[in-house]
């Protein structure tokens, strides 16, 4: 599908504006094919993640976006021109799956955040089963599924806070495509689901820097919390 002019204009703007806030380094670009369908599965730390992925990926990216974002006439006009398409997260949404698979079949690069929402504390959350099933179908069709680690955006714009320069480098790391072996039959597909979840989790823990953060957290000296009685304010019945 050809792009609207809005996409390259805003992509170029993002590539100029984000580096004023934070240094960005992308790694593993060799894992992202420049042609043909490819499915990206990044972790989700910040509302700016889609801008980062779309601005630093070396090709146009179509992003699955929660349907509530399309709630105003402006966003309804703008988001499709930025490559976004809606998903209703509160129910099984077969149309969003159809859109993903048809875009992939047409050779587009599609991005889905498998956690389904931003993390509160920068840690990786459980994956949505529907996303895993869609990824599995993509693999069955021979489409590369690439895990993408986002590391550092939480410091710039966490879910609970405003935008603030963090002074650290943000990394966007593309991992090797997930490899699950043959998944031709329905039984093989069902068996492959936990394998896919496990492989994706391991990849994202590594690529997002969480494994290293967790190691440092475990090795850190014990914090001496002030000994105080646990008090709770009363909530009216």
């Amino acid at each position: 599908m050809s792009r609207h002019l809005v996409y390259p204009v805003l992509r170029s703007a993002a590539r100029r504006i984000i580096p004023r806030l934070v240094r960005v380094e992308s790694e593993g670009l060799e894992h992202l094919p420049l042609r043909g369908g490819v499915l990206l599965l990044p972790n989700h730390q910040s509302a700016l993640d889609p801008f980062l992925v779309q601005a630093w990926a070396p090709r146009s990216v179509r992003s699955m976006t929660k349907s509530t974002q399309f709630g105003s006439p402006l966003m309804e006009w703008l988001l499709p021109r930025l490559g976004a398409f809606p998903v209703r997260r509160f129910k099984i949404d077969p149309q969003s799956v159809r859109t993903v698979l048809s875009l992939l079949d047409e050779g587009e690069c599609v991005c889905i955040y498998p956690e389904g929402e931003r993390s509160w504390d920068a840690r990786l959350q459980p994956f949505r089963t529907g996303t895993l099933r869609t990824a599995l179908e993509a693999i069955r069709r021979g489409i590369p599924v690439v895990p993408v680690g986002i590391d550092g955006m939480y410091d710039l714009l966490p879910r609970w806070g405003g935008l603030r320069r963090s002074g650290r480098t943000v990394y966007l790391r593309f991992g090797a495509p997930l490899d699950l072996g043959p998944i031709a039959t329905r039984d093989q597909r069902d068996q492959a689901l936990p394998d896919l979840a496990g492989q994706l989790r391991l990849s994202l823990l590594e690529l997002s820097g969480e494994r290293e953060r967790e190691r440092l957290r475990q090795e850190a000296p014990e914090i001496s919390w002030r000994a105080q009685p646990i008090a709770t304010g009363a909530n009216p019945r």
């Binding site: 599908m1 349907s67 509530t68 974002q69 399309f70 709630g71 309804e76 988001l79 499709p80 021109r81 398409f85 809606p86 998903v87 209703r88 949404d93 149309q95 969003s96 859109t99």
Partner: peptide, 15 residues
């Protein structure tokens, strides 16, 4: 329905 260039992309709700 959310469409772009006559293609149905999906559905969104208005609150």
């Amino acid at each position: 329905p959310i469409r772009y260039r006559r293609r149905l992309l999906g559905f969104a709700e208005r609150f």
